[in-house]
Design a protein around this nucleic acid. Structure first.
Length: 565
RNA sequence: GCUCUUGUAGUUCAAUGGAUAGAACUGCGGACUUCUAAGCCGUUAAUCUAGGUUCGAUUCCUAGCGAGAGCACCA
């Protein structure tokens, strides 16, 4: 429908020169019963020239009716100040493979997302970032960009030191090789919690107490050892722990459907960051205790008093390392908005130190995942792990499938994809820049506006298409039913919807569209008998096209379709 | 305290400088029993408050109130 919209836009511009291209829109009509496209051109012209909008709209309507290509636009209708258009549609509608967008088509675009830290739990915050980042990447691919995916992971720093230090407070012993990866990672998570708990206890007893100061010192020493690799025992624990964590992440990416092209580590970006800061001291200043700081909107430390790089310093190093690894036209980093203030300052520093790179970088901040009645903290262990959430959704899905005739393996595979769909869709159907309230009972529905609802619709269509194969087909001549017509017109909106999603970096447009499309199909399905003695080939085509759009739309969201459920 | 983000039905979410603010869940009612009922149909219900800009504001601006996040050597 984009070519049609462009055609209309040109025609509007030739009607009046008072208005420029970016002052009005030709977009999808919100109410499908009023048309496929609409323009507010008359309202804008009227406002500009002090004329009556309705009169202008009537004139515009007459003009467009005479000038628009009848092979594209079937009907022009004036309602109030709006002009609505009915596009010529047929069941032979083509679903475009790619959507042209000047910022993406043919460009090299990098997406960094997920960023879990080794030796810490992969929690639902990471799940959220992964979901958003994967979908953004796919929008880039849809727009014809060459896309690379990255995950950046904190394999050095205080959380690692606290974990390794915390091991001594656990009753459990360092895991043996034959233990499952999940168990090993669980062990590391509890060591982190134990370390933090112990430290908090000691602090409670007195911030100046000998015990507390000793503990702080021990963690510092551990941190230093991790950096300089001088302690063989620490090296072994560190290397094993890191490996286990990364294996566990890989298991999850498999379930979630993400495949990263590059992994970056803070142990690598840190030294680069230090080097960049030291060679660009004109942009930095000396702070208290020997720290090196950057004065942006507010002050941030890039190198701390002990000469170690902070988050900001490492991020600066990452900017260079990432670009050197794969020179891109545009780089997006998807991260939580609790980091906004720190990263805004960091980006300002990157633009000064690495101007040719900084201008290509953009941070996208997502809201927090919150619970109705629970505060999350990985320090205290009060979190929901990503895999646990998937498993609990799987159980709910399996319950629904208990009477289906399938093997247990089949059911399990499907339940997993359905669980991921439920979680991802909940995240992607809304504006991710805002916080998301995660109520496991309510928002992770398998019914209603949900991922599974859309998967289910696709399953129904596949089932129909399978049966229809054995039935003789005819070409109906009577007009399509009301429901079929609505479904067809909704299919036509897919391309334009995707364009809007790409333009605004907003996958929720696609998600909301899919709900609408699935709902239109289910309305059609409930009120029309598709097959009898014979089958109308137009309806078969309609089913095929609907399925294709559902599959493509779910793909954009990073959700798999299933054959049965 | 300062900075940033945010405020739409009972709940969880959409949308928009302009056409009757759109879903889902919950509640209540219903149909079919035909191709997967994780479905379909009906029904009640909302733009935090006060100003401003505008022909027109729920959307933009200001203030207030509520919620969340951040406030240099964690990330």
């Amino acid at each position: 429908m984009i070519p049609v919209a462009t055609h209309i836009k040109e025609a509007c511009l030739s009607f009046s020169q008072e208005v420029t291209r970016d002052m009005f829109v030709v977009d999808i009509a919100k109410d499908i019963t009023k048309g496929d496209l609409y323009t507010n051109f008359a309202l804008v012209v009227a406002g500009k020239m002090g004329k009556n909008p309705v009169a202008v709209a009537v004139d515009l309507g007459v003009y467009l009716d005479a000038h628009l290509d009848k092979n594209l636009v079937e009907k022009v209708e004036v309602v109030g100040g709006y002009v609505n258009f009915w596009v010529k549609v047929g069941t032979d509608v083509s679903i475009p493979e790619h959507i042209q967008h000047s910022s993406f088509t043919g460009k090299k675009v990098a997406y960094e997302y997920t960023d879990p830290n080794p030796m810490k739990e992969f929690h639902i915050g990471h799940l959220m970032a992964n979901t958003i980042g994967e979908s953004m990447s796919r929008l880039g691919e849809l727009a014809g960009a060459e896309v690379k995916r990255y995950s950046y992971q904190g394999d050095v720093g205080r959380h690692i030191a606290t974990t390794l230090w915390g091991v001594r407070f656990l009753d459990a012993l360092w895991p043996e090789e034959e233990v499952s990866v999940t168990e090993k990672v669980k062990f590391l998570g509890s060591a982190y919690v134990a370390g933090n708990t112990k430290l908090a206890e000691l602090k409670e007893a007195g911030e100046e107490s000998e015990e507390y100061l000793k503990a702080v010192k021990e963690i510092e020493v551990m941190n230093q050892k991790v950096y300089d690799r001088t302690d063989e025992e620490v090296n072994v624990m560190y290397d094993q722990g890191k490996e286990w964590s990364l294996l566990k992440f890989e298991e999850l990416y498999d379930i979630l459907g993400t495949k990263f092209d590059y992994y970056f580590f803070e142990s690598v970006t840190g030294p680069i960051g230090i080097d960049l800061v030291k060679t660009h001291m004109n942009h930095f200043a000396n702070g208290e205790n020997g720290a090196i700081i950057f004065e942006g909107d507010h002050t941030r430390v890039f190198i701390n008093g002990k000469g170690l790089p902070t988050y900001e310093g490492k991020e600066l190093g990452l900017a260079k390392f990432k670009y050197d690894t794969w020179p891109y036209d545009k780089s997006f980093v998807i991260t939580a908005n609790e980091q906004k203030q720190a990263l805004d300052v960091t980006l300002a520093a990157i633009k000064l130190v690495l101007p040719e790179i900084g201008d290509k970088n953009e941070y996208i901040f997502n809201g927090m995942m919150k619970f109705a009645n629970m505060k999350m903290s990985s320090r205290t262990g009060k979190i929901i792990a990503g895999d646990e959430l998937v498993y609990s959704m799987m159980e709910a899905s399996l319950e629904k499938m208990k009477d289906r005739e399938m093997t247990d393996d089949e059911k399990k595979k499907i339940a997993q994809d359905v669980a991921v769909a439920a979680i991802k869709f909940t995240i992607l159907k809304q504006n991710f820049r805002k916080d998301i309230i995660f109520d496991q009972e309510k928002s992770l529905a398998l019914e209603g506006d949900s991922g599974p609802y859309i998967q289910y619709t696709a399953v129904r269509i596949q089932s129909v298409l399978k049966k229809v194969k054995d039935i003789a087909s005819t070409v109906g001549s009577e007009p399509l039913s009301k429901e079929a017509e609505l479904l067809l017109r909704t299919i036509y909106r897919f391309e334009h919807t995707c364009f809007n999603a790409i333009e605004e970096s907003a996958p929720q447009h696609v998600a909301q569209y899919l709900i609408d499309l699935a709902s239109k199909f289910n309305g059609f399905y409930a009120n029309n008998k598709i097959m009898g003695e014979t089958v109308d080939s137009r309806l078969v085509e309609l089913c095929e096209k609907t399925l294709k759009v559902l599959e493509k739309g779910l793909w954009i969201l990073g959700i798999r379709t299933v054959e049965k459920m």
